[in-house]
Amino acid sequence: MIRISATNLEAFRRWKAHPDAELDEIINYLLKKTPPTEAMAAGSAFHKVLEKASLGELNIEQTDGFTFDFSKIESEIALPETRKRKITRQQMVNGERVTFVGIVDAMDATTIYDHKLTGSLDPENYTDSLQWRCYLDWFSARKFTYNLFSKYQPAANPGTYLIKQFMPISFYAYPNMHRDVMAVAEELVEFIKEYVPELIKDDVSSTSFELN
């Protein structure tokens, strides 16, 4: 049995798209040997802030040693009541039983949402992503929206992130989307079988290797 998350599939797709990327880079990522960066830690803290946010305005929020200042944002931020929704589904892929795992930041009756803390608001960075394709496929949903939050880090205040701008961008389900997801999943399964066989577990209760 292999457990694969949407993040795994997107990381594998991005690795394949860069011909100069080293083999050890994706192997270490799948094995959780890649040390977390400050950006990753800040992103996790930022998600906690949005997950716990109640109705009303976000202002200056602190968690896990980071400060997020939302006071400069004038646009309204939609945060559905349903947050951190998880899904698992099993399927045979190239002779291996695979459990696909997805955790979305928020969702409502019509849309799945994912929050991104980023240095630039560039919708093109997300067009080719497998993440939104996976979630729309696995949740049988129609619309996926990235909530992009543009950040600025003052050099004089380490750990402080000024949230400058908010931009939602949306993608929609399309015919043959499931086929596109499965094509990369099949490649990843073959890659794991050849290069990272230790990720193939006999016990269904074995520790997951997905990163969310």
Rank of each mutant, 00 (worst) to 15 (best):
S44R: 08
G95E: 08
S75C: 06
A78M: 11
Q91H: 08
I112R: 03
E76D: 14
D105S: 09
L58H: 04
G102E: 04
S44L: 08
Q90E: 15
Y113V: 02
R97C: 09
A109R: 15
V104E: 07
V104C: 15
H47G: 09
E76I: 09
P80Q: 11
E81S: 14
K48D: 13
K72R: 15
S54P: 00
S71W: 04
A39D: 12
A53F: 03
T88N: 11
F70S: 02
T110H: 14
N94C: 11
H115L: 04
S71T: 15
L58K: 03
V101E: 13
E51Q: 13
E57L: 10
T110V: 13
D69Y: 04
A45L: 03
T111D: 07
S54Q: 12
S44M: 09
F66Y: 15
I60Y: 06
G102C: 14
L50I: 06
H47R: 07
D64R: 05
T99C: 11
H115P: 00
R85M: 11
M92S: 10
A53H: 02
E96D: 10
A42I: 03
E81Y: 11
L79S: 05
V98E: 01
Q62C: 08
R83T: 07
A45M: 02
L55R: 12
D114T: 05
E96G: 02
D105I: 02
A53V: 02
